[in-house]
């Protein structure tokens, strides 16, 4: 066992876990952050995607030890006090979530994408979300959700 310290959604955590335990399981089992999902366990589907020091990673491929000192953000950290983040609001309005199992990872991937490209082209959206599989939507509603979120963020920036 190893004591590992990191921050999740702005909260400092210190836990004693086997060093090779998957970060996904640490989040779900030790910290009860079940918004992060497991779809494939081999880094293909992106259902377990989180932000790790601002980078989008598949938490099923990260050993707990590697998270020591890291700053993590999971879906639970995207909203603030029950208020939806604009990205979440857009997914809700535009039909970006159907069964919802890919949605947490997809929203974090969108977050990461819009940090990188505040005004993404369709090709950048397609590329940026290509690591997150969705079997329900055919992605079209998700693309619209992302476009609307980008547009809203840009309008806000323009106003301020």
């Amino acid at each position: 066992m190893s004591v590992i310290q990191f921050s999740v959604n702005g909260k400092r955590e210190s836990i004693d876990v086997p060093p090779m335990k998957r970060l996904l399981d640490v989040l779900r089992e030790d910290l009860h952050l079940t918004g992060t999902k497991e779809g494939c366990g081999e880094g293909e589907c992106g259902a377990c995607a989180i932000l790790f020091d601002g980078e989008l990673v598949n938490s099923c491929l990260v050993p707990a030890l590697q998270a020591n000192g890291a700053r993590l953000c999971t879906i639970e950290g995207v909203s603030t006090e029950g208020h939806l983040h604009p990205i979440q609001q857009c997914f809700l309005e535009k039909g970006g979530a159907q069964c919802g199992i890919c949605t947490p990872g997809m929203i974090l991937a969108t977050h990461h994408l819009l940090d990188k490209y505040p005004n993404p082209t369709m090709a950048q959206i397609q590329e940026g979300l290509a690591g997150n599989l969705c079997r329900c939507t055919g992605y079209m509603r998700i693309f619209e959700s992302v476009q609307q979120a980008a547009q809203q963020a840009n309008e806000l920036t323009a106003k301020s």
Binding site: E93, G95, G100
Partner: peptide
Amino acid sequence: GSPIRKEGRAKVLGAAKYIDD
């Protein structure tokens, strides 16, 4: 019309509880 999906809010929050949760 296109009202908001009934269970949509829980889903975008990551708060919806699937069996493994």
